[in-house]
Amino acid sequence: MAAVEVALAGHVRSRAGFVTEAASHLMEAGGKRFRPLLVLLAAETGDRPDSDDVVTAACVVELTHLASLYHDDVMDEADLRRGAETAHARWGNLVAILTGDFLFSKSSELTAELGADAVRIQAQTFTRLVEGQILETVAPGPDEDPLAHYLDVVAGKTGSLIATSARYGARFGGASREVEEALTAYGEIVGSAFQLSDDILDIASESDESGKTPGTDLREGVPTLPVLMARAAADPADARLVELLDGDLADDSRHAEALDLLRKHPAMEQARAYVVARAQEAKDQLAAVPPGPVRDALEAFADVVASRTA
């Protein structure tokens, strides 16, 4: 990870100082480095985990992720990310969007170093990521289950890149094709669980715990796992919550009331149980990985995703 951090710092540099500052902003704010960590961990299933290509692949997925955050924060109008001011809050939407584009382009340059097949995988991943982002803005059809629609969005927006992280690690670390496919399936599931865990944190955590503004998705009317489960409960006792969710939550007092009601709702525990079950499903994909410290770490990785508080 130390090598990845050094490499990332170099990859976000531009000949223009201001571009470097803007592109470094979120990276320097910290973050869990969830995706590059998974690349490095998956690479340990092969016979060349120390390959330079593994470090390059770790940078590819993290730069792609960072780029998407710049765009996400514009769409969400969020003021806080990783406990720091977002780029759009500091410099405006135009700079934030173009900085995201800059990071996407840097990621593409690096992917080209990994070969044509890596470029294909990255392009397919990017297609799914953007498609998921677009679908998030589209309401499900009248005959479509809102929860199923949302889970499809999550698989595209988050699961796809984390699946690719595991695939890249296995491939460039020299793992067998069987292990690569198993880890890709694991990454897809654990990636979706990661986002769904984020949904719970959006409701349950305070900003000093998560580094994000609580209830951002709620305020923007973005459906998340606890909200969808609360709506599906259809309990008469939830009339006030549904009324708030159907209304304008830009008002601080209405937003605070909705947040309080959701935190007390059984849907929160239901959502947590769902995420734990998804983490177990991810661990079940690891049968092809030989028993030992690497498999143990991958299983622990899934457990952390399900129980994280930040």
Rank of each mutant, 00 (worst) to 15 (best):
L241Q: 10
E188Y: 04
Q195S: 09
D202I: 00
A16I: 14
E136M: 03
S107Y: 01
A139M: 04
E77C: 08
S307Q: 09
R48L: 02
V54H: 06
A170P: 10
D53P: 07
A42R: 03
A43M: 05
R177K: 04
A42K: 05
L147K: 08
G17H: 03
L201Q: 03
G31T: 02
A139C: 04
A302C: 03
E28P: 09
S197A: 15
D235H: 13
D101S: 02
A306R: 06
Y168R: 07
W91G: 14
D145G: 08
S68L: 05
V12K: 04
E113W: 09
G174S: 05
V153G: 02
V289W: 03
R167L: 15
I189S: 01
D72M: 03
E62M: 07
E281F: 00
S14R: 04
L298H: 09
P214S: 01
V95G: 04
H71P: 07
F104P: 03
L37C: 02
A87R: 02
L245K: 06
H255C: 09
V39Y: 01
V289P: 11
R231S: 02
L8T: 10
M229W: 11
D303P: 10
E113S: 15
G132C: 04
L244Y: 09
A148Q: 13
A306I: 13
P140L: 01
T125D: 10
A204N: 11
T184I: 01
R278F: 09
V154E: 07
K106D: 14
E44H: 14
I203P: 12
L37E: 12
G30N: 03
L63P: 13
M75R: 12
E257W: 12
A267T: 11
D72S: 08
Q270N: 10
F194H: 01
T125I: 00
V275F: 06
V119M: 11
E209F: 03
Q270W: 09
D145Q: 09
R13V: 12
A148F: 02
E181Q: 15
T20E: 04
T99I: 01
S24G: 12
E180F: 04
S253W: 09
A237Y: 04
A237S: 14
E269Y: 07
T309S: 12
R90F: 05
M1N: 06
V294C: 02
A234Y: 00
A288C: 11
A288H: 06
V95S: 01
S207R: 11
P293Q: 11
Q280A: 15
Y186G: 03
L40Y: 03
D238L: 01
L228Q: 10
T184Y: 12
G31H: 02
A282V: 07
F102V: 04
L63G: 09
P36Q: 05
S176L: 08
S165M: 01
A118Q: 05
L66Q: 08
A234G: 13
R13T: 15
S176Y: 10
P290F: 00
